[in-house]
């Protein structure tokens, strides 16, 4: 669900800072989430994503800055009940059944006994674990535990859901299942802030991506916006020719000011801004140089390129 920009933010952070000794974990972070928006905090391990989530939940005290939930200061009594937290670890009682875990967290979140029982029924259906309701969670697969972990965070129907690496360590099938569950929440209007270091998760599960590195927000926007802001809209083109080049190819001026390719290699690589026009010209230039084209690859810029461009590091470098 796209965010309505005229609405006030449901969660707002202003100049938030947190240090642990000499390490500045969060450095002047400002961020606003609007109702129903899904935002991914993308960054390597140690970037400060989890610390930011902990600050929002009140589990870590801020050194500086302010936060508001639903327009109220975060210190307001009871305002944090608008938040739901799904921690990175499987924070469940392994020696309780699915039903007992769900019921306990519903009660801890302030639901009445009756409301808790109703919500447990909903959660079992939502997670697809109705048949495992009476089984001990400790014996579940990683994916099933993740689903229960997620359900326990939404038992009180929070308006804002904070997910810290919600799919870490699960198989692709379980991951897709969790994504579907998150989509249902988004459809129901829940605002989602998730941390991840997985590019596809950030792309699929968010309207907006906030790239975090070394405690700072270094970019904020939709994927297309981030691409345009950083690497631009150009496409990487790789052309394989029928034989090794005798020397660099002379190209039309609007494609490349300098000759392309190296003697002895059969691949020519370049960037073009307008695929619909320039790709044809590029292929024509290659043929004009006396070579036949045996293969063409066109790569759109990815978040990986964006991250590399912005930080100078691969995302998984940490």
């Amino acid at each position: 669900m796209a965010a309505a920009h005229h609405e006030p933010p449901v969660l707002e952070l202003r100049d938030v800072e947190k240090s642990f000794g000499s390490l500045r974990a969060i450095n002047s972070v400002s961020l606003a989430l609007r109702g129903g928006e899904a935002v991914a905090l993308l960054g390597p391990n140690g970037a400060g994503k989890t610390t930011l989530i902990r600050c929002i939940c009140g589990l870590t005290r801020l050194d500086r800055g302010s936060m508001q939930i639903l327009g109220h200061p975060i210190e307001t009594e009871g305002i944090r009940s608008a938040l739901g937290l799904v921690p990175q670890e499987i924070a469940l009682y392994g020696d309780l059944t699915t039903k007992e875990n769900l019921y306990a967290f519903a009660r801890f979140n302030g639901l009445s006994r009756r409301a808790s029982r109703e919500r447990v029924r909903w959660a079992l259906k939502w997670t697809g674990l109705e048949k495992r309701a009476r089984d001990l969670v400790g014996f579940f697969s990683g994916g099933m535990k993740r689903r229960v972990n997620l359900a326990c965070g939404v038992m009180h129907s929070p308006q804002i859901l904070l997910l810290d690496e919600p799919t870490v360590g699960v198989d692709p099938q379980s991951r897709q299942r969790i994504f579907r569950m998150l989509e249902e929440l988004r459809d129901a209007g829940t605002t989602i802030l998730l941390t991840t270091h997985q590019l596809d998760e950030a792309e699929q599960q968010s309207d907006r991506i906030v790239i975090v590195d070394q405690g700072r927000i270094i970019a904020d926007g939709s994927k297309n916006q981030l691409v345009e802001q950083s690497v631009g809209a150009s496409r990487l083109v790789k052309i394989r020719v029928d034989r090794p080049l005798k020397g660099p190819l002379k190209m039309q001026n609007h494609l490349s000011g300098e000759p392309l390719g190296e003697a002895g290699k059969d691949v020519v690589t370049t960037r073009i801004d307008d695929v619909s026009h320039h790709l044809t010209d590029l292929l024509h230039s290659v043929r004009q140089n006396g070579y036949d084209v045996s293969d063409v690859e066109v790569h759109a810029p990815s978040l990986q390129h964006v991250f590399l461009h912005l930080t100078g590091n691969e995302l998984r470098d940490g």
Binding site: R54, L85, A91, L92, F108
Partner: peptide, 13 residues
């Protein structure tokens, strides 16, 4: 150790 405590403290408990 398994972060259940943090989770509990993020609730009304």
């Amino acid at each position: 150790e398994n972060q259940t405590l943090e989770r509990l403290l993020s609730t009304r408990l």
